[in-house]
């Protein structure tokens, strides 16, 4: 491409995509980068350790119960001599899996629900959003516990129950975005130019709701992981001998007087992950310039 001679009228800058701009802005946010980095680190530990560890997450060694951190067991062992690091990593895999799957469920329900309400508008929109309002006022954690009481303690149920709880805000955000985009001038312009509905949706509306959806997704993942750990802590979620962070924290709390490492390490992993996800989510929100609007 040839550059025209410089004059008062600058040549158009090479186009920046939304993602490029976002990356430039995100790069300046040290806290968000730190979050992303430590997140990668935790994920790497969770993925690699169970694969290379000489111990299985449920391998018991009754000769080495409650052994403090050592060369053989980096983070020590629990009451059945199981390697804590392996159990933390296995629990982390599960937490991450639940975080991703339940968030995907929430995303699917929330985006389609919000999109339908936003596109059709009118009475249907009013009715659908009224339902969301009502569901919002329900004590949902209590409902999840009720579900557990009814169906017993099943991990897959947990995935669905959490996902079914977390879609409401997503539906509101998507609906609000579509509602205002529908009336924006550039959509009008595209329509005047004779573009079809599909093209308008795919090329003009979708890229614009992507920002808020991404931001809210990164903030939903820690919320989901928190709910899973909360339920497992209460004994209503993941069941032993399977491992989960909530379960490990509960176990650690039961024996923290003599064996504090059983509490401290799971808490550390969990807190680091939550911090990172929150920092990253906040950073993305600033970088994508999503206003903190609920409606």
């Amino acid at each position: 491409m040839q550059t025209p001679p410089t004059n008062a009228l600058q040549p158009p800058e090479p186009g920046h995509s939304l993602w490029h701009d976002t990356w430039l802005r995100l790069r300046k946010n040290k806290l968000a980068l730190l979050g992303a980095l430590s997140l990668l680190l935790v994920a790497a530990v969770c993925l690699l350790v169970p694969a290379v560890s000489p111990y299985g997450y449920e391998t018991q060694n009754l000769d080495a119960t409650f052994s403090p951190p050592s060369a053989a067991h980096w983070l020590g062992t629990d009451e059945l001599g199981r390697d804590l690091l392996t159990r933390i990593a296995t629990g982390g895999r599960l937490s991450i899996a639940i975080g991703l799957v339940a968030t995907a469920v929430a995303l699917l329900i929330g985006v389609s629900y919000g999109a339908v309400a936003g596109f059709f508008g009118g009475k249907l929109d009013a009715a659908m959003m009224r339902l969301v309002d009502i569901l919002y006022s329900l004590p949902f954690t209590i409902f999840v516990i009720l579900l557990v009481a009814i169906f017993g303690r099943d991990i897959y149920l947990l995935f669905v129950a959490i996902g079914a709880v977390e879609w409401l805000t997503m539906a509101r955000i998507v609906r609000g975005q579509i509602n205002s985009l529908k009336r924006s001038e550039y959509v009008d312009a595209a329509r005047t130019l004779g573009f079809g509905k599909t093209r308008i949706i795919v090329r003009h509306i979708l890229p614009n709701i992507l920002g808020p959806v991404i931001v809210y997704t990164t903030l939903t993942i820690p919320a989901v992981m928190l709910l899973e750990a909360f339920l497992s802590f209460l004994g209503l979620g993941v069941q032993p001998p399977m491992s989960s962070w909530g379960l490990l924290i509960k176990n650690g709390a039961d024996s923290m007087e003599e064996y504090p490492w059983l509490l401290v390490f799971p808490c550390l992993f969990f807190s680091i992950t939550l911090f990172s996800l929150n920092f990253l989510g906040d950073g993305l929100r600033d970088a994508l310039d999503v206003r903190a609007s609920k409606d």
């Binding site: 924290i249 509960k250 923290m256």
Partner: peptide
Amino acid sequence: AMIGICVPTFVLGPVAVLLFAIHLRWFNA
């Protein structure tokens, strides 16, 4: 405030017990 928001109750609780009840013995566990 950021710590309070990110660290859930079921982490804060046992850690507080460990610190203030078991080590410092200010309160009952």
